[in-house]
Simulated assay, not measured.
Amino acid sequence: MTRLRRNPRGERAAKAVAGGARIRFDLAARAEDRGRPRRDPRAESAELLIGGHARPRLDRSGAAGAAPSSVEETAPTAPKIAVVESPAFLIAVVPDALGERLSQHDRQLFGAARMLAGADGAVVALVAGEVEGLASAGADRIVAIGEPGYDPEGRAAAIAGALSSLGLRYVLFPETSDGGDVARRLAVLSGEPLFSDVEQFSATSVSRAARGRRVEQRAASKRLMTVAADAVAAYAGPEREARPEPVAPAAPIKRAILDARRITADPATTPLTVADFVVSAGNGVTDLALFRRLAEALGATPGASRMLCDAGLMPRESQVGASGSVLTATCYFALGIAGAPQHLQGVAGCEHVVAVNTDLHAAMIERAGLAIVADAQDVMQALIAALKEEGA
């Protein structure tokens, strides 16, 4: 053998401490064969002890007792931006971008486009006006196709011009009232077939339900497609360049629609399933009159938890949850709602959740992107006062 045989008795005798009635051993002594000292948890805790407190507190952040570093800390590097300088082909995305911001459905379109583009292609965002978040969504180029507002005829004509001038390989639309309208108008203008309501998406084929969802239609990817919500995951890669791409303006068209505008629906009568902003009351709301005033001041659709609906304090159609209405709102504001599993299922599709509750460990607080640990009545009064001051 190339190493000495261990002598446990000799090692133990070497650690014996003389002078005591009972045999004691120094376990912190360095072992000759291991070359490292035994850990002393008590001494380590003593080094982390913070003084000035009635109860012992330890600083485990690493700052206490840390030796000063002789190496200067380098500044964080800037995030990497992916650039496609000379793409082999272009994939276009036409998001709804209501309010000049991308919805989750719009971001899923960019995820589908990046899947089709691969490493050689580039994704072009065809948008009206200035839209936020296109670089993080996955757009390599940006092409302006008009001004914000409801103009399906003008938008379809502008996309038809870009279709030929840019040589777009695919054009993706969201399967929504606005996106589907523009996609069908473009199909008529260009003579291209439209494969609508894609529910399963891959780089080579697409499929959708047909005949009352009894059969599945599968086909190769078409040039014009509308994509259903949640068919593809949103793009989660590095930020893209989002470089503006100039194109020739579209030729004037003979419009059949002389005047079109969006009419805002009354939030108080809007169904919860199609509402964009919902504020709900739970068992922690004791002043329902104040809650209704807040919903009116915010311009939100009022909802409620099951407990309030069962008690008859709120109408049954306002119940939020798996046993009530399942929401797809952009913002959900929960006041005094603990967050039962059925209620959390009902708000799973909401993009932003704000919760107010006195319990720091409530499930709704954990689900929320913004949480306020306070009494709901105090928060409602403060919000109404702030809204009055802003409107004054």
Rank of each mutant, 00 (worst) to 15 (best):
V93G: 14
G111A: 01
D59T: 09
E85W: 00
E47R: 15
A82F: 04
L90D: 05
F89H: 14
G65R: 02
S70P: 04
H53Y: 08
H105S: 01
P79S: 08
S86W: 00
R114C: 11
E32L: 07
G62L: 07
L102E: 04
P79Y: 07
H53Q: 06
G99W: 04
P68D: 14
S70Y: 01
G51V: 04
G111E: 02
P95I: 06
A43F: 06
L98F: 15
G111N: 02
L102F: 04
A92G: 03
V71L: 05
A117Y: 10
R57W: 04
R34Y: 10
G99K: 08
L49Q: 08
V84Q: 09
P37M: 03
G65H: 04
R34S: 08
R39K: 08
A54F: 06
R42S: 12
E73I: 13
G35M: 08
L90V: 03
I50F: 00
R57E: 11
A112N: 10
P68Q: 13
P41S: 05
G51N: 08
Q104R: 14
A92F: 06
F110S: 10
V71K: 10
A46G: 03
A46S: 04
D40L: 00
G51L: 09
Q108A: 11
Q104A: 14
D106T: 06
R107P: 03
P95A: 10
S61F: 13
V84W: 01
P41Q: 08
E72H: 05
I91V: 15
A64E: 00
L58E: 07
V71M: 07
A64H: 07
V93M: 04
E100P: 00
A78C: 00
R36Q: 12
S103M: 07
L49V: 03
E32V: 09
